[in-house]
């Protein structure tokens, strides 16, 4: 018997977690869907009912809704995942289940980083699709504008005023953004096993304190290194230096995510009741 990883045992563990927490998970997802639909209805109902003229900026609520509510959704799920291990009766049952610590940890990653992110994106996508499809059936979605950014001067371009959220906001400009949900959930997953009570609040405060200290260190060291010196930028804002910074930032996020996951694994391995 492989005592570290067995695909069949991992499947059983996923199934067990789903049978125990699936119902609560689906209820949470339904609540999230309700909140998103409410926001869309509240913001767009007047336009759908054609009681007021449509402006493109009426859709501007989507970005903050996706970012703030999406952050809350995935962090709340991650923050609750190992929270029950703080309670002796629940911890005993879970730790005695014949699966390896690594499998239990991977199940945590699946439910918090992958399933929660994918399901939130899915419900947001479906809601956006439904409302935008309705709006597009009522209003003309495209308009012509003059662009002056082309090398040839003024050029007429066709703009989609009713673009679907994910066609407008895909992370094609900076692919490093794909790591963000993993990074955020890794912090809250660690918090869920590190603290015994009030996981969300304690993790949030800890993250704020650490990021505050980090910002202060970066700011102070930057000031120490670059104060009274002249910046020489030969490449402009879109040169290789920008790509390097973006790559470094993505690598840093990957590294931090891996570190948080590693600490979570060690905490799970060392968990005592």
């Amino acid at each position: 018997m492989n005592n570290t990883f067995n695909i069949q045992r991992f499947g059983l563990l996923l199934k067990r977690q789903w049978l125990e927490f699936g119902k609560i998970y689906l209820i949470t997802l339904a609540v999230a869907l309700g909140v998103i639909v409410t926001f869309y209805s509240f913001s767009l109902w007047g336009y759908i009912a054609e009681t007021k003229p449509f402006y493109e900026r009426a859709l501007n609520f989507r970005e903050p809704l996706f970012l703030i509510f999406g952050f809350l959704f995935i962090t709340v799920i991650a923050s609750n995942y190992f929270a029950h291990l703080g309670q002796k009766p629940k911890a005993i049952i879970d730790l005695m289940i014949p699966a390896s610590t690594f499998e239990k940890f991977l199940t945590g990653i699946f439910f918090t980083a992958i399933l929660s992110t994918v399901s939130f994106i899915f419900i947001f996508y479906v809601t956006d699709l439904a409302f935008l499809a309705k709006l597009r059936s009522v209003y003309h979605s495209s308009s012509t504008r003059t662009s002056y950014t082309d090398a040839q001067g003024a050029v007429a371009i066709v703009v989609d005023n009713l673009a679907y959220f994910f066609s407008k906001n895909g992370p094609h400009v900076y692919k490093g953004l794909y790591i963000i949900p993993f990074f955020v959930t890794s912090i809250f997953l660690l918090g869920s096993i590190y603290f015994n009570k009030f996981h969300y609040i304690k993790t949030t405060i800890s993250a704020m304190v650490f990021s505050g200290i980090w910002t202060a260190i970066i700011f102070k060291s930057g000031k120490l290194l670059f104060d009274n010196r002249t910046l020489i930028n030969r490449m402009g804002n879109n040169g290789p230096a920008k790509d390097n910074v973006e790559l470094c930032l993505a690598l840093l996020l990957v590294l931090l995510t891996l570190i948080f996951w590693s600490i979570t694994y060690v905490r799970l391995k060392e968990k005592q009741v």
Binding site: N3, I92, P98, A99, S100, K269
Partner: peptide, 11 residues
């Protein structure tokens, strides 16, 4: 906490 042992323990 190896699975091989945990399958043989009823707690």
């Amino acid at each position: 906490r190896q699975p091989a042992l945990l399958t043989e323990i009823c707690f």
